[in-house]
């Protein structure tokens, strides 16, 4: 398990190749080898959702894959989605609604929301809560997160521009 293996994959649009111990998880590979520290590890057993990334178009736990298993795949992290500006409206809605406190769970939340909002239709609050069932947050109590995702979903459905802002009562 500590033998070195070659890992080649596309991360956030760029090809990367490294030789790492076979037991390196995708999460450790992203965080330590590539220094993409936006992906967090909160439990290392696929429960908390802080390590979610997009792997070949699907949201998965980076802590539950070995890096070598992702060879040949395309991975996108919160840094990549941010650079591509595909979640700018979602991030803005989170910011305006203060849908984060410590921010440790937030990249995982954004991944789940990104995936949910990539599907057709406008999700209900119940759908959003269901989608978030694998994302733990200890600070917010989830309500503001659901609000922010719901706002983004509605704005997108209404064709609102990416920077649509939610009204906040002063």
């Amino acid at each position: 398990m500590s033998d070195l293996v070659d890992v080649s994959l596309i991360v956030n649009g760029s090809e990367v190749s490294h030789r790492v111990p076979a037991r390196t998880t995708l999460a450790d590979f992203l965080r330590q080898t590539l220094e993409l520290t936006g992906t967090h590890t909160g439990c290392e057993m696929g429960v908390c959702g802080a390590c979610l990334v997009v792997l070949d178009g699907q949201v998965v736990h980076a802590c539950l894959s070995f890096a070598v298993q992702a060879s040949g795949s395309a991975v996108e992290t919160v840094e990549g989605l941010t650079e591509r500006a595909v979640i700018a409206d979602l991030q803005e809605a989170f910011h305006q609604r203060n849908a984060l406190q410590c921010g440790f769970c937030t990249p995982g939340m954004l991944m789940t929301a990104y995936s949910l909002l990539s599907q057709p239709g406008v999700p209900s609050r119940e759908d959003i809560r269901d989608a978030l069932s694998g994302n733990y947050c200890r600070c917010t109590g989830y309500e503001a997160i659901v609000d922010a995702i719901e706002t983004t979903a509605r704005n997108r459905a209404a064709g609102g521009d990416a920077a649509a802002r939610e009204e906040i009562d002063a």
Binding site: M1, M45, G46, C63, F66, Q69
Partner: peptide
Amino acid sequence: YIAGGQSLVPALALRLQAPDVLIDIA
């Protein structure tokens, strides 16, 4: 054997199992 790894990898992370070889069947 490892397929999705969603049960096996946690067991490895907790060092509950420590096989010498994992065979990826995915």
